[in-house]
Design a binder for these strands. Structure first.
Lengths: 186, 186
DNA sequence: GGGAAATGGCTATTGACATTAGCCAACAGG
DNA sequence: CCTGTTGGCTAATGTCAATAGCCATTTCCC
């Protein structure tokens, strides 16, 4: 029997694509093995089971998204920068729904890699908001509010939760503009 | 063998409590049957399977939350009303994490009951925001923004996604205040 | 090169869960 | 009563995750 030449990276990469295709809940080791042309138990030579696979997807997703946001914010400040990262955030989530869903899983408090990846993501937003010169704690509140708004919109959108036939792009613009207006009129 | 005296209502009610206890993903028919002192297949006499059970939980959750928000908003207007429903929203979600998660599942477009329940929930927020006299489409955008912000915060909080040791109540206040400020400074 | 060790596939098995089929006792109405 | 309906049950099937243990392939060291 010829070898399939798998590596942990290739397995995770295939899992990411599969998750984006069929949705995270339908990402099954059986389906993944099938797509890789391999039997299900063979995957265990590269990953530590379904849960570990989801965690790996989550880590890589946080990295990718953080980089994407950082690129979007480069060279911009204040309102411009906030708008840019908000658009980048939503765009990434829509292009990678499976990865995005995986990313939402709380990093286990005893998982340094997970916490680090999460911190990196937060720090991009911290940098963008630093232009507003908010006081210590207010800066934290502002970051949380922005994350909440972006995540909430994207999550509801992904779940198909916005029923009415009103343009979603405009709604998202409104949301970001309203947030920025709130910050600037303090 | 003496009968257990189950009804669809009792089964769903037990499922709701179980979901809040162990988390929606761990709500299994086996565990539910066990808690009800019954064998697993017996549940099928009252519900149409796991998926239908989750849908039932979702419907009831939307109703309950809508009522809770309506009560909170009663007799208030504008900023006061927005703050009141935001607090009620977050409180309900924290007290019923399993039901809340169930509620997020998109209602199937071909499911009139689901759409109706969802509409009822939206209409409570519509009423609250009507005090701002927003133009047609802007009202929709404003509702979506508020839902997004509330849901995003609650979801991240539930997932343990806010790492830093800064008070969450204050962050939520900030989020709501920032939203209201944004609306009022248009 | 040649041969031990590590490695990456495999089959077989177990165990949790959802679901369906089909049985039979309990209850309800006449 | 006794007859039909109903609400439990056992048994069986199928899917998936996971583990054990086999064997061919690669690697790497002498």
């Amino acid at each position: 029997m010829p070898r399939a030449g798998l590596t942990a990276d290739r397995v995770v990469a295939a899992a990411e694509m599969l998750a984006d295709d069929v949705g995270l809940p339908n990402l099954t080791l059986a389906a993944l093995a099938d797509r890789l042309g391999v039997r299900q138990p063979s995957l265990y030579k590269h990953i530590d089971g379904a849960e570990a696979l989801r965690r790996a997807i989550s880590l890589r997703a946080m990295s990718e998204l953080a980089e994407s946001l950082a690129r979007a914010a480069a060279g911009r400040a204040r309102g411009d920068a906030v708008r840019a990262i908000a658009i980048a955030y939503r765009t990434w989530a829509r292009e990678h729904p499976g990865r995005y869903t995986a990313m939402l899983r709380a990093p286990d408090p005893g998982d340094p890699e997970g916490l680090a990846a999460s911190d990196r993501l937060v720090s991009v937003v911290v940098d963008v908001l630093s232009g507003y010169g908010l006081a210590e704690e207010d800066a934290i509140h502002a970051i949380r509010a922005l994350r909440s708004a972006m995540h909430g919109f994207v999550a509801i959108e992904a779940a198909g939760g916005f029923g009415l036939p009103v343009d979603l792009d405009e709604s998202f613009d409104f949301l970001v503009a309203n947030y920025v207006r709130g910050l600037e009129s303090r």
